[in-house]
Design a protein around this nucleic acid. Structure first.
Lengths: 206, 206
DNA sequence: CTTATGTTGAACCCATGAGTTCAGAAACTA
DNA sequence: TAGTTTCTGAACTCATGGGTTCAACATAAG
């Protein structure tokens, strides 16, 4: 404690500590005392920056969501210019998405969002719109380019993107036991391969 | 209140009331007082049947999971003897599964399971093993029969079943806004159709 | 009628935790 | 150095809620 650094990033420390504790304990069980402790800060300091436990939660979720989203969008980058081997590029992207999706932060974010969605309906706009929706959108854009150059045969890139993501990420829930089990990397590779295999069988160019 | 009926089903009423309140409020926010009220019972009566709030939760979840599972397995029935039109049968089953999966009880069950999985790890065995896993197993059995009679071309029914369910149920999360929005039936029909379309393109017999 | 079991409402104990107050200590500003 | 802002720790208030107790009551069996 008493890591007396600059004051500007106290807020940052609080948000990170808050997310850590919320992720570990859940919203209701997480007490502000522990959050302050996790952030290396006194309890009143927390209330200096955030009026409420609720708004603290909102801001922590928002911050976590932003970083998670950025990583995921970045993972689509290879599709912007796929080489000759489309399958390999798809598998690479699929594998990257799987790793990001099974990351502890990502799992915790989804779990918290899911569990508190009834008490914080506004989290949906804050997190979801800037999460899966944007990812699907970005992927759809990539796929549309591929369709235009004849490397995929689809007339509905949005649907195709939705199905690719469903095929890829759907099995994760059961396999990771709702995020309580971490999958070995070879299994992720296999899943990426299986997904791309079926995806190309359905949508690949002749 | 004071619906003084037989004593045998007090337990049943408590379990149902408990699930209702847990679903509405979440585990931590649900207070036993309200559960008792919802079940039309006095608080000490609840503690007569269940030692703890925790075990009350476990039993309520278990009971809810059992009914949900039974419905889902039953929805696969048409696949036991698909008529000449395999596509139509698959669409029928897909549509039934979508409706069950978007049901309020089902959504609430998944949300509670997801949110409390860190505090009640044993729920995984109680609920999950008898949930998605058994459903996938049952579907894989059906698909294997179809493969044997040449109506599907797959060598791995388990993977195929997993992908069918992923393709079907994966998009639900985003579309129902994590279960906070109910989808109109025509949209469910469209989703079932899209799923079967892609599924057959990847796995259908020539 | 009597006894045993289960239910009821109300009151109670007690732990937890949100949010506040305050006096003093850093730390940054000038 | 003096002044302003922020942080700190500890103690405090207060509401919530888990779990229990108890005396009165209902019911069913013998």
């Amino acid at each position: 404690m008493t890591t007396t650094r600059g004051r500007i990033d106290k807020r940052q420390a609080i948000l990170e500590g808050a997310f850590t504790v919320f992720a570990r304990e859940g919203y209701a069980q997480a007490c502000v005392q522990k959050i302050a402790q996790e952030a290396g800060v006194a309890k009143p300091t927390v209330y200096n920056h955030m009026t409420d436990k609720a708004t603290l939660f909102r801001h922590a979720m928002e911050a976590a969501a932003r970083t998670v989203l950025d990583e995921r969008i970045a993972a689509l980058e290879p599709l912007a210019d796929p080489g000759a081997d489309l399958r390999a590029t798809l598998e690479e992207v699929a594998h990257a998405l799987l790793r990001l999706h099974t990351d502890g932060r990502s799992c915790a974010l989804r779990r918290l969002l899911f569990s508190e969605i009834t008490h914080f309906p506004d989290l949906l706009e804050i997190v979801q719109d800037s999460g899966p929706d944007r990812l699907r959108q970005a992927l759809a854009d990539r796929l549309a380019r591929l369709a235009l150059t004849g490397r995929l045969r689809t007339t509905d890139p949005d649907l195709t993107a939705e199905q690719f993501l469903a095929l890829l990420l759907g099995p994760l829930e059961a396999r990771t036991r709702l995020g309580t089990r971490t999958l070995p990397d070879p299994e992720l590779r296999t899943m990426a391969g299986d997904t791309v295999e079926s995806f190309l069988r359905a949508w690949g160019a002749a």
